[in-house]
Measured scan of single mutants.
Amino acid sequence: MEQGTVKWFNAEKGFGFIERENGDDVFVHFSAIQGDGFKSLDEGQAVTFDVEEGQRGPQAANVQKA
């Protein structure tokens, strides 16, 4: 798993971006967030995640709040 920081996340649209430790950004969809209840992330929040190849390039999977 990688570690990163939430760059931004739009809860209304259900997606955002995580900044990886290497400085690259990776797309995150709310469906990739682990846990119960409303799935959202806060700007600046530390997270761990896997990276999978999506239809439009790399995207975060198995996102967990650190």
Rank of each mutant, 00 (worst) to 15 (best):
H29A: 03
R20G: 05
D36C: 08
F9H: 02
K13E: 05
D24V: 15
D50A: 11
E52H: 13
A32R: 05
V26W: 02
G37C: 07
E2W: 14
G14V: 02
V6P: 00
T5P: 02
E19V: 14
S31V: 05
D42S: 14
A66V: 15
V6Y: 00
K13A: 08
S31T: 12
H29M: 05
D36Y: 13
K13F: 10
Q59H: 09
V47G: 00
S40V: 13
A46Y: 12
N10E: 04
N22T: 14
L41V: 05
V51R: 04
N22C: 08
Q3W: 12
R20E: 02
Q3A: 11
E52R: 10
F17S: 03
I33K: 01
R20H: 06
A32M: 06
E43H: 14
Q3N: 13
I33T: 02
R56N: 11
F49A: 01
D24E: 13
E53G: 08
E21H: 12
K7E: 02
P58M: 09
G57T: 04
V63A: 03
Q45R: 05
A32N: 08
N10I: 06
A32C: 05
A60C: 05
L41W: 04
F49D: 00
G14I: 02
A46S: 13
F38G: 07
A46V: 13
V6A: 03
L41F: 05
V28C: 06
E19F: 13
L41K: 02
A11R: 15
K39H: 07
N22S: 12
D25E: 12
S40N: 08
G54Y: 06
H29F: 09
D25Y: 11
E52V: 15
T5H: 11
Q3H: 14
S31N: 08
P58R: 10
Q3Y: 13
I18D: 00
A46E: 11
Q55T: 14
G14K: 03
S31R: 10
D42V: 13
G4Y: 01
E19R: 15
Q59V: 12
W8F: 09
E52L: 13
E19K: 15
D50C: 08
V26P: 00
G14S: 03
W8T: 03
F27Y: 07
F49P: 00
F15T: 03
Q55A: 13
F49L: 04
G23Y: 08
N22G: 12
I33N: 02
Q45F: 05
F30N: 04
R20S: 07
G54K: 08
S31Q: 07
E53A: 11
V26T: 04
D36Q: 14
G37Q: 07
V28H: 00
I33P: 01
E53L: 15
D25G: 05
V6E: 01
K39F: 06
A61Q: 11
A11E: 08
G54N: 07
N10D: 11
K65Q: 10
I33Q: 02
I18L: 09
F9S: 02
R56E: 06
T48K: 10
M1N: 11
R56C: 08
K39S: 06
E43K: 15
G37E: 06
E21L: 14
V51N: 03
D42E: 15
K7P: 01
A61F: 13
K13H: 10
G14L: 03
Q59Y: 15
V63G: 01
Q3P: 06
V63H: 00
G23E: 09
N10V: 05
Q3M: 09
A60V: 03
W8K: 04
D24H: 10
S40D: 07
K39Q: 09
G44Q: 05
K13R: 12
A66W: 11
Q34F: 10
E12I: 11
A66Q: 13
K65E: 07
E12L: 15
F27R: 03
V6H: 01
M1I: 13
T48I: 12
V47H: 00
F15A: 03
F15L: 06
N10H: 09
T5C: 08
G23T: 06
V6I: 09
A32Q: 08
A32V: 07
E2H: 15
G23D: 11
F38C: 07
A61N: 09
A11H: 14
S40F: 13
V28D: 00
E21S: 14
R20C: 06
I18T: 01
V63M: 02
V28N: 00
G44V: 02
N22P: 08
A61I: 14
E12P: 08
R56S: 08
F49H: 01
V47R: 00
V26D: 00
K7G: 03
I18K: 00
I33F: 06
T5Q: 10
M1Q: 14
E12G: 12
D24K: 14
F30E: 04
G16Y: 01
W8C: 05
